[in-house]
Amino acid sequence: MLTTSGMLQDKVVVVTGAGNGIGRAIALAMAAQGAAVVVNDIGTGLTGDGLDDAPGQRVVQEIQAAGGRAVASKDSVAEASSAERIVQTAVDHFGRIDCVVNNAGILRDRIFHNMSVADWEAVMQVHLHGAFYMSRAAARHFKEQQSGALVHMTSTSGLIGNMGQANYAAAKLGIVALSKSIALDMERFNVRSNCISPFAWSRMTGSVPTDTPEKAARVEKLKQMTPEKIAPVAVYLASDAAKDVNAQVFAVRNNEIFLMSQPRPLRSVHRGEGWTPETVAEHAMPALRSSFVGVDRSSDVFTWDPV
């Protein structure tokens, strides 16, 4: 039900990819905390193909049935002009824009040597370009009103690594850099930009293979991590309570919230006379090797069961 004095009372929020899964859960939670919500979803399948005209409208109806305010948008984030229309929908219907949640995404997983240019470009266009287009469209309004929040969905596929996802991983790690740059450039206007790396069972993770008993067991554990577990952090980051939280990357895994590291120097070696290829091999690499980062997948790092 709608909270009449929630953390987002009188705020206006755009949530992209909000017709299903994590986006839907975030849109409902934003509305429950008092926000007016633009529910953006073009209604395509997991790969960006196919069409279902109704998912965004169904979420709008859920919000309205609970006493909230919402409007549907079917424009694509993957084009600059349509991203502008999504943000303008918020302004036209609710008079302002206070937060954009960049959640829209597709998957086209391929082992790297089989990945086509089309697979690469489609995923980049929705995830990385879409986050840029949406953030840029909102930035002018944020600057004028001297406030605003951006919440971007990243992934441990980019932060750590996963097989068969070069396109997705590159886009998702690019979003972290985009978010940090926005935070640096827009902080002077009281605009914040943060990332969430969500662990949740949704259409995006529904393609995880279950061809061995071990993989099937892991999928059953993943199903405990519902999209609703992600929404509270997104609501918080959109709210004034997070006014001092900027340029951070959080991961949410069932009932756990992590602050993720960002690249910083780990160790150094110095040679006053400079380096040759031979001394790099003989001195630098042996000295640095104990701090090398492994060729890890996300599941190699998050090895424990969700709690």
Rank of each mutant, 00 (worst) to 15 (best):
R136H: 15
A104F: 09
W304G: 02
V38T: 07
A284R: 06
T212A: 01
V269T: 11
F132H: 14
M285E: 09
V126I: 10
H152K: 08
P286M: 06
T156S: 13
D75K: 12
G45F: 08
I63N: 07
A27R: 04
M285D: 06
Q9T: 06
K11W: 04
T212P: 01
K221T: 11
D305F: 06
S291P: 00
Q145K: 10
T210Y: 13
L128E: 01
V71S: 12
R253S: 05
G164C: 06
A139N: 14
R271K: 14
F132T: 13
D109G: 05
T16M: 00
A242N: 09
G161C: 07
F142V: 00
S268C: 03
R253V: 03
V301L: 05
D92Y: 11
V249A: 08
T226C: 10
S76I: 12
F250V: 02
A31G: 08
V208H: 04
Q57Y: 14
V14A: 04
L46P: 04
A27Q: 09
G164L: 01
G19A: 10
R253M: 07
M7K: 07
E228C: 03
A104G: 12
R253C: 03
G56D: 09
V15C: 08
V38M: 09
G158L: 04
D296C: 04
K229I: 08
I175L: 11
G50I: 08
R271C: 12
A131R: 10
M1W: 00
N40E: 13
W120L: 05
A138L: 12
T47W: 08
A231M: 07
E214S: 04
V59D: 01
T226H: 12
R267V: 05
R24H: 09
E214I: 02
R85K: 15
G34C: 01
S298I: 09
I42R: 01
K172S: 07
I86K: 02
V280I: 15
R136A: 07
E121D: 08
E121S: 04
S147T: 10
K221H: 13
R96Q: 14
M7Q: 06
N103I: 04
K223T: 02
A131I: 13
L159E: 01
I42V: 12
E121L: 04
L128D: 00
I230G: 03
R192V: 03
T276G: 12
K243Y: 11
A238K: 03
V15P: 02
P306N: 09
V295N: 10
D98K: 04
P263S: 10
I97T: 14
I196P: 11
W201I: 12
